[in-house]
Design a binder for these strands. Structure first.
Length: 378
RNA sequence: GGAGGAGUAGCGAAGUGGCUAAACGCAGCGGACUGUAAAUCCGCCCCAUUAUUGGUUCGGUGGUUCGAAUCCACUCUCCUCCA
């Protein structure tokens, strides 16, 4: 069989959003789905058992980080990433393209690949599309990304066109280098910033190479919500209906819902776990900076409407105390809740699609969360 | 009783004539965070108003000086050592 199989189960009559599932060798996950990020083969503060409890079905790990440390050969020797980190469900690895983009200080791009300095040792490193695949093959995730080239969302047309074309060539090289197409699904990544013709061209070029799934990259890098939604509006229709679509790096509740409405199936983001560690939680009524003094004597749960372990057992006052005291249990509880919150949100979204009422759900959710839901065009 | 040392903003701690409302750290308060070099980063943090400006400070009192946390005198408190 192929490494993954996507099955479209239902299309929401109100919005056209897709309900589906993706079958992998490590189990099936429901779409639309949010994927927690575990860069260094761990979702910070969360055990695999915790991840199962918050409803995670697939998680991310990072090629770049694991390549540098501990080194993919060690992970391979351990029996692969699933075994190494004790997560026997689907895993997706990112290629390292985003690291090259975000750690720009010591990075140089050319047609062959990306040269940069190892941020841990300072040693010069070179990541080619082939090398990225080789590392990902060794790590053994169920879904892997080809190496892509990002530029600033507002780069000029010529620069963006160069990045798009190079990303396509790199995707093709990755496809050729891929050793395990029967066990690992390689996704190509659509680039093109906010240029409609480039996005469409990028998508078409990748589709012609026939990947088992497609990512949309270069978003949530500083552009507005409107810009992101516009890009999705003209990009997603270029992608085949029988393959999963993955919007990379998106994790605010509104963007998740609006992405689903535009036909996206998969999302990942560090946001819920990062803001959790920095003292902010997501609730049904919006973000709450739980470390603020206002909650010192608030003995209610983080979110009245949440039935996660953290909300059922611990108060805002207690969690705030733990955070102020820098006790690790505090960031575990906030991380636990934030992941539960987003995963539960996606569960509700799937339910809404099934019942053909995603537009209604969106309106209700936005109202409670405090988003302005006026400009909804889908 | 004698000798030496120290007293700076909530705490710790720089500063020994003007560039000092006073470095820096901690605590406190607020903000940011989107394919994780992030349990991080950025502000504020004497008082009042505030992108400004004004007022009061460096144990206390009184001096010297155009000008003092910084120099002098007296005084209070604490620490160490000797009796």
């Amino acid at each position: 069989m192929a490494a993954i199989e996507y099955k479209l189960l239902h299309v929401d009559k109100q919005t056209g959003a897709r309900l589906g599932e993706v079958k992998t060798l490590h189990g099936t996950f429901q779409t639309p789905i949010f994927m927690p990020v575990g860069t260094q083969a761990t979702v910070k503060t969360m055990s695999p058992e915790d991840l199962e409890k918050v409803g995670a079905q697939i998680i991310l790990a990072n090629n770049y980080h694991l390549w540098l440390r501990p080194g993919q050969e060690i992970v391979k020797e351990a029996g692969g990433l699933h075994k190494f980190m004790n997560w026997n469900h689907p895993i997706l690895t990112d290629s390292g393209g985003f690291q090259a983009f975000s750690l720009t200080d010591n990075v140089k791009f050319n047609e062959e690949g990306i040269s940069f300095k190892n941020h841990l040792s300072g040693k010069p490193m070179f990541l080619s599309p082939e090398k990225a695949i080789e590392v990902e093959n060794d790590l053994g995730a169920d879904i892997i990304m080809s190496l892509d080239m990002l530029t600033d969302f507002h780069s000029d047309y010529a620069e963006m066109q160069k990045a798009v074309n190079r990303t396509t060539r790199w995707a093709e090289r990755g496809l050729k280098a891929h050793q395990n197409p029967d066990t690992q699904a390689l996704f190509g990544i659509v680039q093109g910033g906010g240029y409609e013709d480039l996005r469409k061209q990028s998508a078409r070029d990748l589709v012609s190479l026939d990947f088992p799934g497609y990512s949309i990259g270069g978003l949530s890098v500083g552009e507005t919500k409107e810009e992101m939604n516009q890009v999705l509006d003209y990009t997603v229709p270029e992608l085949p209906e029988d393959k999963p679509r993955y919007l990379m790096g998106v994790g605010t509740p509104d963007a998740l819902i609006d992405g689903v409405i535009r036909g996206v199936d998969m999302f990942d983001c560090v946001l819920p776990t990062r803001i959790a560690r920095n003292g902010t939680v997501m609730t049904s009524k919006g973000r709450l900076v739980i470390k603020n003094a206002a909650y010192a004597r608030d003995f209610g749960p983080m979110d009245d409407n949440c039935d996660c372990y953290a909300c059922r057992n611990y108060s805002r006052a207690y969690i705030r105390h733990l955070l102020k005291a820098k006790e690790s249990f505090g960031i575990h509880l906030t991380s636990y809740h934030n992941l539960y919150f987003l995963l539960d949100l996606m569960k509700q979204v799937r339910e809404a699609i099934k019942n053909d009422r995603l537009a209604d759900f969106r309106a209700e959710f936005f109202e409670n969360y405090g988003y302005n839901s006026k400009h909804m065009n889908f």
